[in-house]
């Protein structure tokens, strides 16, 4: 997590980002700055544009207008910049998206190998290091389908980390998991956040948001309604939309 006293470097900056799907406006001019080492949690009702927003950052979706800058690279849709941005940004999906026909270890070393990052041994050592960090090294030679959902998601995190991106995007990483597996994934994410990774997480895990996020963002109808440090976000929400949202999703004892 970020040390607030030091001068900030902005890792990700979004200004007036607009995105349409046909006539439907998914993002209506969204602006957000994420400092280096900061953990941002984005929440909001489904269809509010949370996923679209983070998918614009690494150009899985192309935005229609507005500026996106990632670590000094302007995300303008040119192939070279898009490639550069994807090197800076790792992503973890709701459905894990591991490659089913190769082993866990091969999932992790594949990109390193294809991008000629190092020798086979160095790549495997690096992969084992990150598998160790997500506490799943002993499963390295299994196929993804032999692992539980939580284990697969941790492998997906390790796979992204192998490219050593300074920024990580999480798109509802625990939404497809059985309840008993959610915490093992959140724990790995928390470790990452405390290790200084710049993270933007779309998640409904409010406990994680309160504990780990530097700032929380509430989105609804393609707009950001509120950005606040985690404590203020939960204890003193300003916008009525956010208050209504928190009332619906939190047990009544969690806030007054």
């Amino acid at each position: 997590m970020r040390d607030i006293s030091t001068p900030q470097t902005i890792d990700v900056s979004l200004r007036d980002v607009v995105k349409h799907y046909g006539p439907f406006q998914a993002l209506k001019g969204v602006s957000l700055e994420v400092a280096k080492g900061e953990t941002i949690v984005i929440c909001g009702p489904s269809g509010s544009g949370k996923s679209t927003l983070i998918r614009c950052i690494n150009q899985l979706e192309t935005h229609d207008s507005g500026d996106i800058v990632v670590r000094g690279i302007t995300v303008d849709g040119t192939p070279a910049n898009t490639r550069d941005v994807r090197i800076e940004v790792g992503m973890v999906f709701q459905q894990f998206n591991l490659f089913p026909h190769i082993t866990v270890l091969q999932n992790c070393t594949l990109a390193l190998r294809l991008l000629n990052k190092g020798t086979k041994r160095l790549n495997e050592e690096k992969a084992m290091y990150y598998l160790e960090r997500v506490r799943i090294a002993e499963q390295a030679h299994k196929y993804p389908a032999q692992l539980s959902g939580g284990q697969q998601q941790r492998v997906a995190i390790a796979r992204a980390l192998c490219m050593e991106p300074p920024v990580m995007l999480f798109d509802e990483p625990t939404s497809a998991l059985d309840p008993e597996m959610i915490n093992e994934v959140l724990q790995v994410m928390e470790d990452l956040a405390r290790g200084g990774m710049t993270m933007i997480c779309v998640t409904h895990e409010m406990g994680f948001a309160r504990r780990v996020a530097d700032r929380c963002v509430f989105m609804a109808d393609g707009e950001i309604h509120e950005i606040a440090p985690a404590e203020a976000f939960f204890d003193a929400p300003e916008s009525p939309r956010l208050r209504g949202f928190l009332d619906r999703i939190l047990p009544s004892t969690a806030h007054s």
């Binding site: 899985l60 594949l110 990109a111 294809l114 991008l115 992204a160």
Partner: peptide, 21 residues
Amino acid sequence: PKGQFEACTVLGLPRFHAWRL
């Protein structure tokens, strides 16, 4: 699954190798 294509994309796999492997 669309996610297989997206995983290849975000990992920056060269297109030819993504198809091949």
